[in-house]
Nucleic acid binder design. Structure first.
Lengths: 323, 323
DNA sequence: ACGATCTAGGTCAGGTCCTGTCCTAGATCG
DNA sequence: CGATCTAGGACAGGACCTGACCTAGATCGT
């Protein structure tokens, strides 16, 4: 024919897409849809299987083909709405790095945003704006758009230009070679080699503005320490104004760790129903809300700021209820 | 050769996977990786383009190929970690349906879970367990695993068997033909035709246990009303014990709507800095935490239960801070 | 128990189309 | 201006894909 391209490949992709719908497909129906003979469908199924995609078949009258879970991930074929849903989900997930898969999450986001059609991108943006940062005041939340750009540049080893606002408010323009994105606590940090200052720097991503990939690929530079994550946290603890929280909870240590989503080693068991929380936290408001919503009695020993905030919060709650 | 399958298709898939990495690939490097001649790579790129995937090429010394955003979604080729990240993201997104894409989100989750390799499924489960329901006490949160099963059965039009615990605590076993999953407020509901009772029923998904697809496909039944979502909400409001919240916030109506993530018509403007919230809410704890974390002064007029809860919360906060 | 309906797969002939080689043209960067 | 990319035409040989036909085995409903 004329525009045939590679009929077989296109058909295989379409077949994979059909089989990803969670239902059974009789061979004859697939043959109709793909406009080939049933024999060819069987051969296509074989091909997919040899490619590693486990196509399950059930025999008999109600039988048919379906794609099962296998050894490797097959290519995901998503319709528009599903793609948008995934993008939104990844964005919120990236905004709340509490998982242990933060980096993969941002990588997936970058991969998706790279190929996301513009019209869908718009829908993601509007939906993402509507989505609330669950922590309330949206100012501390991270812009996933920027994260995606940073992740993309990091993966591509592309030199990057952006505006940075330091802790003291001074604004500078930077040209860096991004090395790694690291999530620590509830924030993202970019470890990069600053070309102007000729040294390694750690940037808080929420202080980065207007990131522009230059398109220039640079050879990968060896990160300063053995571990990038360790380097970032070391840098941070040496300068960041974090609080050291000490509190006693009327809750078992394991349950507290699970419900608060903090690492288990931050909790010391006192008895079966009591434990002590001891760890760093940069935002008191966040921790206070989390502790209160637990529903169990607790006592805060340190820092004084957290005690003060709780008192203030209690006052606001009382005023709201009794006015 | 022996195991060749369809060399071309496999290569196209691999090429697509390579191009999804956010970087530029020179044709020669692609040729090496794919173990074909550069000419064939060019032809493969052409094929992908004719299949609808916009492969961008930049010329000159630093040139190369990369996949750009096009008209349609290309198949996403994910590595293990990325797949896990997406699954976790979708699960949390499905647990907090505040978006407007709840259904697509669950559909995507079902699609992904269908093909997720078992070892990755384990990782998703452990990570998902570690992920905190941001609302605190995990009892009200939805199990994404069950949601995925329900979504899968709904899409496949498969008859479904599960255990159901009614509001009064009585446990029954059901055999239904699932019709649609609907998110309302912070909960999921399953609209289904109950085969034993021969009528349509709405089930709260968090009261569903041990869902088992029977594997039996049934022809699609016409949903009762014009709109499934409308039917569900009508059913709910006629019986559910929801609260009618009335509160005054020291915040502009638009900002309040944005920060609280509630529909704009729930807020009535009083002046530039004040608005009145008026709407239904099924969980007081959730709303209380959201209002408090806003940081602005507010007054709760109704319901009395919310006022009582705020008083209790204030007491707990005070005790935690001053003991 | 039997027939209907599905998957599974072997064989064969015909023709499509895919591949590597060789070559020229155009774009871009230093 | 030269190096290094992409872009693409021409050609020969061979791989492989398709449809048609047929047989075997599994499963379900009557």
């Amino acid at each position: 024919m004329m525009d045939s391209v590679n009929t077989t490949s296109a058909r295989l992709l379409r077949l994979l897409s059909l089989l990803q719908t969670p239902r059974e497909w009789p061979g004859t129906e697939l043959a109709e849809r793909l406009e080939v003979s049933p024999r060819t469908v069987r051969r296509d199924v074989d091909r997919l299987r040899e490619l590693g995609y486990p196509v399950q078949a059930t025999m008999g009258t109600t039988g048919g083909y379906r794609l099962a879970a296998g050894k490797a991930m097959p290519p995901l074929l998503l319709d528009d709405e599903e793609a948008v849903a995934i993008a939104v989900g990844l964005r919120t997930a990236a905004s709340h790095p509490v998982d242990g898969i933060e980096e993969a999450s941002v990588r997936a986001l970058a991969k998706l945003e790279q190929v996301l059609p513009p019209r869908l991108r718009h829908r993601v943006n509007t939906l993402g704006a509507a989505t609330v940062s669950v922590l309330g005041n949206g100012e501390s939340s991270m812009d996933p758009e920027i994260l995606a750009v940073l992740a993309s540049a990091t993966a591509a080893q592309e030199r990057l230009r952006f505006a940075y606002e330091a802790a003291d408010g001074t604004r500078t323009r930077r040209l860096v070679e991004p090395c790694r994105l690291v999530a620590s606590g509830r924030r993202w940090y970019l470890l990069a080699y600053d070309n102007d200052r000729d040294d390694w720097r750690v940037f808080r991503t929420d202080r980065i503005g207007e990131p522009r990939p230059t398109g220039v690929r640079v050879p990968s530079r060896v990160p300063p320490g053995e571990d990038a994550a360790a380097f970032v946290t070391r840098k941070l603890y040496s300068s960041a104004p974090t609080y050291e929280v000490v509190a006693t909870l009327r809750l078992s240590a394991t349950e507290a760790s699970r419900k608060l989503g903090l690492p288990a080693d931050a909790f010391h068991r006192i008895d079966d129903r009591t434990c002590r929380l001891h760890g760093p936290s940069d935002t008191l408001e966040w921790l206070a809300a989390r502790l209160l919503v637990l529903g169990c009695p607790f006592e805060v020993h340190d820092p004084p700021e957290l005690r003060a905030y709780l008192v203030d919060l209690a006052a606001r709650a009382t005023r709201a209820a009794t006015s």
